[in-house]
Amino acid sequence: MVLIGVLLIMIGFVLRFNSAVVVTVSALVTGMIAGIPITSIITQFGEAFTTNRYMSILIVTLPVIGLLEKNGLQQQASKVVSKIKAITVGRVLTMYLLIREVGAALGLNSLGGHPQTVRPLIAPMAEGAALSKYGKLPEKEQQEIRAHAAATDNIGLFFGEDIFVAVGAILLMNGFFEQNNIPADPISMALWGIPTAIFAFIVHAIRLRMFDKKLDKRLGSRDQ
């Protein structure tokens, strides 16, 4: 019965209703089906909303990023990259993937992020690379490049961070096994993440190369 809430979410996302509304309705419905009194649901709502304020930390970066953007940060990022010869969208993003993944593996999670790095720097750099190579950048391709920039940040972060021993995920799993009296070792857990981390890098780097080829085909190189 409680799965009705999950079903509501899926229907809502498929029919493209506003996600914030769908999520709230699903939470209320799920709570009521489970027999939690409505006042208690609202209280739990408020409690969870407050505890999870850290999720909205991006707000604190807005004044700096906004001010720098007003003064041409994105244009400057794009300009710097366009001066490098043989630069391509795929190469810019593969380089960022490497930095992001290795950084996360060393525990440097705060090295990147969407509001502070992708929007002001990485996306404009990738767009700059496309502009200098093709001399033009239609909206459709611009949107794809931006989506790739955001995806690169996520993939680098996710498959890098579990290589670092003191990350939340590793500590959580170790704690869980301890509770169940199963001997486990955080260092070994982190090390056994390395094969997947390398595989993820290779796969995504190949996909970025293919993305370059696709752009070449669609936009044609300027030198040709």
Binding site: G5, S26, R53, S56
Partner: peptide
């Protein structure tokens, strides 16, 4: 608002036994 709302949903799901 969405990340905070989704975390809230997660809490309700857990309490409801999903």
């Amino acid at each position: 608002l969405l990340p905070q709302l989704l975390a809230t949903l997660g809490t309700i799901y857990t309490n409801a036994g999903v």
